[in-house]
Write a protein that binds this DNA or RNA. Structure first.
Ligand SMILES: Nc1ncnc2c1ncn2[C@@H]1O[C@H](COP(=O)(O)OP(=O)(O)OP(=O)(O)O)[C@@H](O)[C@H]1O
Length: 643
DNA sequence: TAGGCCGTCATTTTT
DNA sequence: TGACGGCCTA
């Protein structure tokens, strides 16, 4: 198909798309077509005769990557879906499968998620005998502080301080030497067991490039054209990777919006995009101010809020293509229950009366539990929805445990997987599980029958487990999954029976078990098309999103962070009251946290094309108590508040 | 040492 | 509201 680039793009966009050589930065506000430029640029390069193998497109999620590839392919042809498009992490993982031996790591390493990291740290703490020292930080906290330090090039102390605040930091300061020791052991544990966490993917890839200039040059030759979306949310390590890949060849196009940097809490650095032109000399900078997404009323709101409250970045006034004569609405419902029913009614009206399809309607929330009431109502009314953000499918305990069966079958020395599995059995708690898992780490499956507690009452269960795992070896992947499902379901039933607890709790747990079994079916369906557990596990580690089902028209509930880059006809923003959204309050104006909340708010309202509802309940529930809901300090002076 | 039970505490966002 | 640490008993 012929693409008329001049017709589909405005002048600045066209320039950004057709400047293929040398560094290019598109710095522009929401809805100005930055992502569109990336998609057209892929098509343009391919059309010009660049091979898909020579194009690398980095995005924030793998989902976004696939969508962009698909859009380009729909516009031009299938060649566009042959390009490499993924997240930094996936890209590094791919490269390390090829080159990790160069830095002394086997290429069949396993990728571990933050939950596994925390488990490893707990085990190490127990070895040091500091697992139950009072005030010692939680393993998951250590994992995130450690990660933040690495991603921002900060010291561990600074990262901990930022995370805990002054008061709590003082309480744990005396543990710093212990913590450092533990983290050092954590590093060697991973090395010994051929594991990499998310940060290692970046760090080890950097080592490869540093120590092997020939690889660096080779990759620069392969990936002649690199493009990066959402560059405002890149971090220290990611920038380092890109700059190393762009020493020899400088074809690099990055796009972003400093107002949309919302991952600072995880180490994103706006400076990366702000200073890009200085760091990449000869960079062409393109600014876009025409917004194609929203009506003028929504643009006015975002312009005025940012102008009034933004203390940093540079103000980019956006102009819409049309005026709608409908103002964004601030809705003061009585409480969160009424908020939910207001949204429900409005959704039904939009859908039934204005014929807005569900997939053009979105409810945005700062935190994924804000929508529990609404979800209950939607389920009751049988209105279908997708939920993005918050607890992910593969984060659920029962799913993780399920996967541990696979892990133990693939690698019977996987201590962490054994640790989780063993704890499922009656009579085995932290201590037994840790010790038996340690035995399995050296002896593999034999560890189950050669540990020091073989006289305990749970031993028959472990022998049973051993033969079960052995049997899995001869099974087809799909059959294997079915076996695990029935084994684990039975185990859950037995555990439930043995539990001494009230009838009410029991009922609840029974329901949870039933849901778990349904989730297993979902998991098994997702695994369809994979013929080995290894590739399956690998993919879900880096893209932990639940599968999509058939083409049903569904509305969306999403955290603001997961709604990046999306757009909808109608958007509801829940709980626009201080301490909920924003999670800060008036007293924190000027802090980094408050500034990031403002940018979050900006992202939220600029998702809307035509209709925007800002919900602000008068009363909110807080730890069971009721509190007054104070309108977000970002908008209290913008709206005429009618009671 | 497991696991039930009770009191305390603090809340986000995710590759 | 819930998750989690601490205490107690078997
Ligand atoms: N030149 C154009 N002509 C018509 N429509 C356009 C043009 N440029 C962009 N659009 C449309 O405007 C909308 C927003 O574009 P896009 O998602 O690329 O913006 P963005 O800058 O990436 O936004 P955000 O920063 O919010 O992710 C899309 O629906 C896109 O198709």
């Amino acid at each position: 198909m012929e693409i008329d680039y001049r017709k589909e793009l405005n002048k600045s966009q066209y320039e950004a798309v057709t400047t293929t050589e040398g560094p290019v930065l598109i710095l522009a506000g929401a809805g100005t077509g930055k992502t569109r430029c990336m998609v057209y640029r892929v098509a343009y390069l391919i059309e010009k005769g660049v091979s898909p193998n020579n194009i690398l497109l980095l995005t924030f999620t793998n989902k976004a990557a696939n969508e962009m590839k698909q859009r380009a392919a729909d516009m031009l042809d299938e060649r566009c879906s042959q390009i490499t498009a993924c997240t930094y992490h996936s890209f590094c993982a791919k490269m390390l499968r090829k080159y990790s031996q160069l830095i002394g790591i086997q290429s069949d390493y396993t990728i571990i998620d933050p939950g596994d990291c925390a488990d490893i740290i707990s085990i190490i703490e127990a070895e040091h005998g500091i697992d139950k020292v009072k005030d010692f930080p939680r393993s998951s906290q250590l994992v995130s502080a450690h990660s933040k330090a690495l991603n921002t090039n900060q010291s561990l102390e600074d990262a901990l301080f930022d995370m805990l605040g002054k008061w709590k930091y003082m309480k744990i300061e005396r543990f710093i030497p212990d913590i450092k020791k533990i983290l050092a052991d954590y590093q060697s544990y991973k090395k010994q067991n051929n594991m990499m966490d998310y940060d290692d993917l970046l760090i080890n890839f950097i080592s490869v490039l540093k120590r092997n200039p020939s690889v660096k040059n080779k990759l620069a030759d392969i990936y002649q054209y690199i493009m990066i979306d959402e560059y405002q949310d890149s971090n220290y390590l990611q920038e380092k990777i890109i700059f190393m890949l762009r020493e020899k060849n400088r074809n690099l196009a990055v796009v972003g919006d400093d107002y949309q940097c919302i991952y600072g809490f995880r180490g994103s650095m706006v400076e990366n995009i702000i200073n890009f032109p200085q760091k990449m000399s000869g960079c062409k900078v393109v600014y876009l101010t025409q917004n194609y997404r929203s009506n003028q009323e929504i643009m006015d709101l975002s312009n005025i809020v940012m102008k009034k409250h933004s203390l940093e970045g540079f103000f980019k006034k956006l102009v819409a293509t049309h005026v709608a004569n409908i103002q964004p609405l601030l809705v003061r419902s009585e409480d969160e229950g009424e908020e939910a029913s207001y949204i429900l009614n409005k959704i039904m009206a939009l859908h039934d009366e204005e014929e807005i399809p569900y997939h053009e309607i979105c409810v945005l929330e700062r935190s994924s539990y804000h929508s529990v009431r609404l979800e209950a109502l939607l389920n009751k009314m049988k209105i279908p929805y997708d939920k993005y953000g918050g607890m992910k499918f593969f984060d659920y305990d029962h799913i993780k445990n399920f996967l541990c069966f696979l892990r133990c079958q693939i690698n019977p020395h996987d201590e962490i997987a054994w640790f989780r599995l063993l704890k499922l059995f009656d009579g085995i708690g932290n201590v037994y599980a840790r010790n038996i898992a340690a035995t399995c780490k050296t002896l593999g499956l034999e560890g189950l029958v050669q540990h020091k507690y073989i006289k305990r009452k749970f031993q028959p269960d472990l022998e049973n487990l051993k033969s079960f795992i052995e049997k899995l070896n001869d099974q087809d992947f799909q059959i294997e999954l079915q076996s695990i499902k029935s084994f684990y379901s039975r185990l859950m039933d037995i555990t439930l029976m043995l539990m001494k607890t009230s009838e009410k709790k029991r009922r609840e747990l029974a329901r949870a078990n039933k849901q778990a079994i349904r989730d297993f079916d979902t998991l098994i369906e997702m695994a369809d098309g994979y013929d080995s557990p290894v590739t399956f596990l690998e993919e879900i580690m880096l893209e932990a999103s639940p599968q999509k089902e058939e083409e049903e028209d569904r509305m969306v509930i999403s955290t603001i962070h997961s709604a990046k880059g999306l757009e909808f006809h109608s958007v509801f923003v829940m709980n626009c009251v201080d301490t909920m959204f924003p999670s800060t309050d008036k007293d924190q104006i000027g802090t980094v946290e408050d500034n990031e909340e403002l940018r979050c708010f900006y992202v939220a309202i600029t998702r809307a094309k035509e209709r925007l509802f800002l919900m602000a309940p008068k009363y909110i529930a807080k730890f069971g108590c009721v509190e007054e809901g104070i309108i977000s300090h970002f908008i209290s002076d913008v709206f005429q508040v009618k009671e």
